[in-house]
């Protein structure tokens, strides 16, 4: 996936409705837009529109079952970005702990 791909992941998930849709698909398994719309305060068309954004970002995949299109969550692209955030955040936590010990040992509390 290109940098544009990662942008697509994050902008797709910037919208709370789309986060909710992904969470539902993860929790409840593959669903059609019609089934999803039944439980949500929006039209089927609106659900399809959001699912399309998620599909573009690689966060859902579609399968055709008879006359129905079913959507399934595929959160691997998100996992990659989140993995980087967790790893990088943990490193800074360790670094900043050491920095705190270093500067507070060195200078003590500042004069007021």
């Amino acid at each position: 996936m290109t940098p544009d791909g990662l942008d697509a992941v994050f902008s797709a998930l910037a919208d709370p409705t789309r986060r909710d849709l992904v969470a539902r698909l993860v929790r409840e398994g593959p669903r059609s837009a019609t089934t999803l719309a039944r439980d949500l305060p929006m039209t089927r068309q609106a659900v399809v529109h959001h699912l399309q954004s998620l599909d573009d970002a690689g966060l859902v995949a579609t399968t055709r079952e008879g006359r129905e299109v079913r959507y399934e969550a595929t959160p691997e692209p998100l996992s990659e970005a989140v993995a980087w955030m967790l790893r990088t955040g943990a490193r800074w936590d360790r670094r900043l702990d050491r920095l705190r010990q270093q500067v507070e040992r060195r200078s003590g509390p500042p004069a007021h």
Partner: peptide
């Protein structure tokens, strides 16, 4: 420059992932 990510993930029925991890990701966002 993000790390290369897997191309659009397939919808293989056997693919498994951690729901809590996904939801954690959403809360981080």
């Amino acid at each position: 420059a993000p790390t290369p990510l897997a191309a659009k993930a397939s919808s293989a029925a056997g693919s498994r992932w951690d729901v809590r991890f996904l939801l954690l990701g959403c809360s981080l966002l």
